[in-house]
Design a protein around this nucleic acid. Structure first.
Length: 928
RNA sequence: GGGCGAUUAGCUCAGCGGAAGAGCACUGCCCUUACAAGGCAGGGGUCGCAGGUUCGAGCCCUGCAUCGCCCACCA
């Protein structure tokens, strides 16, 4: 296509799919295992549920940016794609589908249900990966992993066995967070807390023993938010030092509604300041009460079942839900006048992070991973800065989370996931746990070395080390050979924790593991810093003796215009695919980068994309401009000769500005401040290159008498530089422009394949030129001022005028004379007179600028009363500034304390402003 | 209860010790041969409040207020 036929408007749709396919087809993002330094990222694997949302778009844009940037810096880049099976979340999706058919997973049975799960994952599990291709992500698709594929599953089972042998995995009856909807245990971090409006019930518990002194007939009052659990109370507790209740320690209390006597015990955990200072103790249904119960050997009276309904033992309350039971209990208590009062109360309630239903603390048999040693070495790595978090503010919470870590509940009672490789002997004892750990397939492990517990009754857990997914060959106790596998599966985050090593092939000693571990940087949002990042650090350090990544780049969460998290239920989502369709993928990517301010969440609204789309168009058109002008020429150009060219001021200036831009871009990228990077690029390209340099270049390009070669070379250098700088952020449009440059033989052969094979720009100090920048600044402000007058006085651009510049010093005079064309061209001025004793023509507008005066004879063109107003306004501004400067200079301490250069600067400013004011005053007086 | 962050132009946000900035929105002029998704120019801010440090404070310190997030055994 001839360059002149390049469309005037950049059309993303017509180029994006071509490039997305091209990068894959040409294997551009597959590493070659050569001598270069590796740069590796493993993707935070999206769950196989649903499709790409803005959070994914942000996360992956940032990773892609880093990969492309590093690739252009000659690193051997690898970005590993993959998906997560997503445990509960994914199972919920399929269960919902079943529910539509009025079926539950139990109707299907485990096997059939899992078949359905796999079917679903096959059908829609890769949706997001396909969408990431559209986003332009330079992932190596030949290495795509899934947390439940063969490689990753092997890692999971192997890791489980290793921990088991070490004695760090144990099973025990504990109080865990139970989701009554998902029918599974949750780890502590999978519980989210929501502030809820609730009631605090003050309930009277009659005292049975020792009716004397002040307690005669006065019942104890306990405050609780969960009256229904009183059916399972086995004590009442106060703080041992609370003077109000000192006399009655050990007395017996009548538990209302239940024909039962319970003791009044004392425990440090009670806060005397809360409520009445008296607490009902329900060891089976509250974590603190559970602990109190342990300390005081209280019985655990289970009154709520795993389904969230009241147990048989509760008599008339049986089968009621927790909520219904609460109402009933309160009604009953009220009837018996046992409610002292009910207060409104705000407190946070734990809910399931997957379904939002209130979590029930319940006692059940669960598997745990002991984490103290793991946390310890991870903390050490942090202290030694082996893992650095960007921005640093996240380091503190990360460290304190590790410091306060409790054992990790790794078992889930769902079906979708890695089934725990532990076996029960069918012959000798049903509660007999077997885990196969040795080559002969059998190893006895009688450990539950945590808190002196044992696993089941005389249990001998066995695992199969060589084939963990298979049962042991025989039972060492009874020699039986028939086993049943544990039905629990592992927490989905267990496999996620192994992700950086499992995707590279661990526990095999694969070439990839050897070459690409540890990875370079992990890019993620802060919501999974603990859930995921900390655990990967633990696993990587333990199994590979090295941190899995040296940098953690934490980006913000995408929110809507009101600052709310985007969610389908709120209906405030901005769909990245729609945005890509409407504004182009590069525009989407640019906005995400532009808003990626370190340490801050970003608020997006749809109009932010318009500016980015316009920016794309600007880039497109300025490239078009350069190409159109080069098209007719035929020159060969080696960038090395750049410093040898004889350059005009504008060219010296833009090259100097470009070097500084390159430096600033590099600095911002190194600190993961991509908002900064975006701003720098936007500013340079639009406000400096396009607005000034390109406009000035027309002086030469549009003048048939001028030699255009040097200017075209500079334009070309800049366009190439800009395309390269932008590429990591905006890969599509830059590739397209690059291709056109290639078609005109304007780039080196080995760079033609893709922009990523060119070198990322490096600053060339030789080309920095502060003098040129100062001179251009001078000319640019003169030009702007002249344009301002024209605009304010409504002199149309078509009206050519002349100007007089009076009073420049000799340097300024030379500069102005040499570049009078700049002014003429950009201010639409026909003629410029420069001199030291020029008279102001009658009926002139005037501006006083940097020690000189500029006259614009505008007789007949403007209304001079307007000019007077304009001057008056200017005059007032100057007066204000002088007041300000005087105030500063008259501060006696200013001259003694401020640094010399600051004093000089202030004095100069004062002098200049004074001069301006005097001249302005003169002219003001002359206007009738 | 503890920690973190925010509070700057109508909106979204930069700036973090020496003359208040950008984009969007708004106003005026311009279809100037890269771009009207554009150009040129303009209006609009006692930089949350109160103290303090400093010659000098959106910027540093201390309180306070409001909003948001994270953590915690808030019965």
């Amino acid at each position: 296509m001839p360059i002149t036929e390049i469309p005037k408007v950049y059309d993303p749709k017509s180029v994006e799919s071509y490039w997305a396919d091209y990068w894959i087809k040409e294997r551009i993002f597959q590493p070659q295992l050569n001598q270069k330094i590796p740069f590796v990222i493993v993707i935070p694997p999206p769950n196989v549920t649903g499709s790409l949302h803005m959070g994914h778009a942000l996360n992956n844009t940032l990773q892609d940016l880093l990969i492309r940037w590093k690739k252009m810096n000659q690193f051997e880049c690898l970005w590993v794609p993959g998906t997560d099976h997503g445990g509960i979340a994914t199972q919920n999706v399929v269960e919902k589908m079943l529910k539509a058919e009025k079926k539950s997973r139990y109707d299907l049975g485990r096997e059939k249900f899992l078949a359905k799960m796999w079917e679903w994952r096959k059908e829609s599990g890769d949706t997001i990966l396909m969408q990431l291709r559209k986003l332009g992500c330079g992932l190596d698709w030949t290495r795509t992993r899934f947390t439940m594929d063969e490689t990753c599953s092997k890692s999971v089972l192997f890791a489980f066995n290793e921990f088991f042998k070490k004695g760090w995995i144990y099973r025990g009856k504990r109080m865990v967070n139970w989701c009554v909807r998902c029918q599974t245990a949750l780890s502590d971090i999978e519980v989210e807390y929501e502030e809820r409006k609730d009631k605090l019930y003050y309930i009277r518990y009659p005292i049975l023993s020792g009716k004397k002194e002040g307690w005669q007939g006065v019942p104890l009052v306990v405050a609780t938010t969960r009256p229904e659990t009183m059916l399972g109370d086995t004590a009442v507790a106060v703080h041992p030092d609370d003077p109000r209740y000192e006399k009655i320690h050990g007395w017996w209390i009548q538990l209302p509604l239940v024909e039962k006597e319970i003791p009044l015990i004392t425990d440090q955990a009670i806060d005397p300041k809360f409520g009445t200072g008296v607490v009902k103790v329900t060891p089976a249904h509250d974590p603190i009460d559970f602990e109190i119960g342990e300390r005081h050997h209280l019985t655990q009276e289970v009154v709520i079942g795993f389904d969230g309904k009241m147990k048989e033992s509760t008599g008339k309350y049986a089968t009621l839900s927790r909520e219904e039971c609460r109402k009933e209990v309160v009604k009953e208590l009220e009837a018996q006048s046992l409610i002292e009062k009910i207060e409104d109360y705000r407190h946070s309630v734990g809910v399931c992070y997957r379904c939002g239903v209130i979590v029930e603390p319940l006692i059940s048999d669960q598997w745990f991973l002991k984490v103290d040693k793991l946390a310890e070495q991870t903390l050490k790595a942090s202290k030694e800065e082996k893992i650095k978090i960007f921005p640093e503010t996240w380091n503190k919470p990360y460290v304190s989370w590790l410091e306060n870590l409790k054992d990790w509940c790794i078992s889930r009672q769902i079906w979708w996931g890695h089934r725990i490789p532990v076996w029960y002997c069918n012959k000798c004892d049903e509660s007999h746990l077997l885990i196969n750990t040795t080559s002969d397939g059998v190893k006895n492990i009688l450990t539950d070395n945590i808190a002196g517990r044992t696993i089941g009754e005389g249990a001998s857990p066995l695992i199969n080390e060589t084939n963990p997914e298979k049962p042991p060959s025989h039972c060492p106790k009874c020699n039986g050979a028939s086993f049943t596998q544990e039905t629990d599966v592992l927490d989905t985050w267990f496999s996620s924790a192994l992700w950086p090593i499992s995707v590279l092939g661990w526990p095999e000693e694969s070439p990839d593991l050897e070459r690409f571990y540890p990875t370079s940087v992990l890019v993620t949002g802060h919501e999974i810093l603990y859930l995921w990042v900390a655990r990967m650090a633990m696993m990587g350090l333990y199994f590979k003796k090295e941190v899995p990544f040296s940098h953690v780049f934490i980006h913000g969460i995408v929110r809507d215009k009101q600052g709310k998290k985007m969610s389908k239920s709120l209906g405030n989502v901005i769909d990245p695919l729609t945005i890509m369709q409407k504004y182009g993928t590069d525009a989407l990517r640019f906005v995400l980068c532009l808003n990626s301010v370190p340490g801050r969440d970003m608020q997006l609204s749809e109009d932010s994309f318009i500016a980015a789309r316009n920016f794309c168009n600007k880039i497109w058109n300025v490239s078009r401009f350069v190409l159109m002008n080069i098209e007719t020429t035929n020159f060969k150009f080696n960038e090395a000769e750049l410093p040898l060219l004889e350059l005009d001021l504008a060219s010296q200036w833009i090259l100097s500005r470009f070097q500084k831009t390159v430096l600033a871009v590099e600095k911002s990228l190194l600190s993961y401040d991509l908002a900064q990077t975006s701003r720098i690029l936007y500013q340079f390209i639009w406000s400096e290159f396009c607005d000034w340099y390109v406009e000035l270049s027309k002086l030469i390009l549009l003048d048939p008498t001028k030699n255009k070669e040097t200017t075209l070379k500079i334009l070309l250098v800049l366009i190439k530089g800009i395309v390269k700088l932008l590429h990591p952020m905006m890969p599509f449009i830059t590739e397209e422009i690059w291709k056109k440059l290639g078609e005109m033989n304007l780039i080196l052969k080995d760079e033609t394949k893709s922009v990523v094979f060119s070198l990322y720009p490096k600053a060339n100090i030789q080309l920095e030129n502060d003098l040129a920048e100062t001179n251009m600044d001078f000319l640019m402000s003169a030009i702007t001022k002249i344009r301002t007058i024209r605009a304010e006085m409504n002199v149309p651009p078509a009206t050519k005028i002349e100007i007089l510049i009076n009073g420049p010093d000799s340097d300024e005079k030379k500069l102005l004379e040499k570049h009078s064309l700049y002014i003429q061209h950009l201010c639409k001025v026909e003629k410029i007179l420069i001199g030291n004793k020029l008279e102001k023509p009658q009926k002139s507008a005037i501006l006083v600028f940097s020690g000189l005066e500029i006259f614009l004879p505008l007789e007949g063109l403007i209304d001079f009363s307007k000019e007077k107003q304009r001057l008056l306004k200017e005059f007032n501004l100057l007066q204000k500034e002088i007041e300000h400067l005087d105030a500063r200079l008259s501060q006696p301490d200013f001259k003694t304390h401020a640094p010399e250069e600051e004093i000089v600067r202030t004095l100069e400013r004062k002098k200049e402003t004074d001069q301006k004011l005097i001249k302005l005053k003169e002219h003001l007086e002359l206007i009738q």
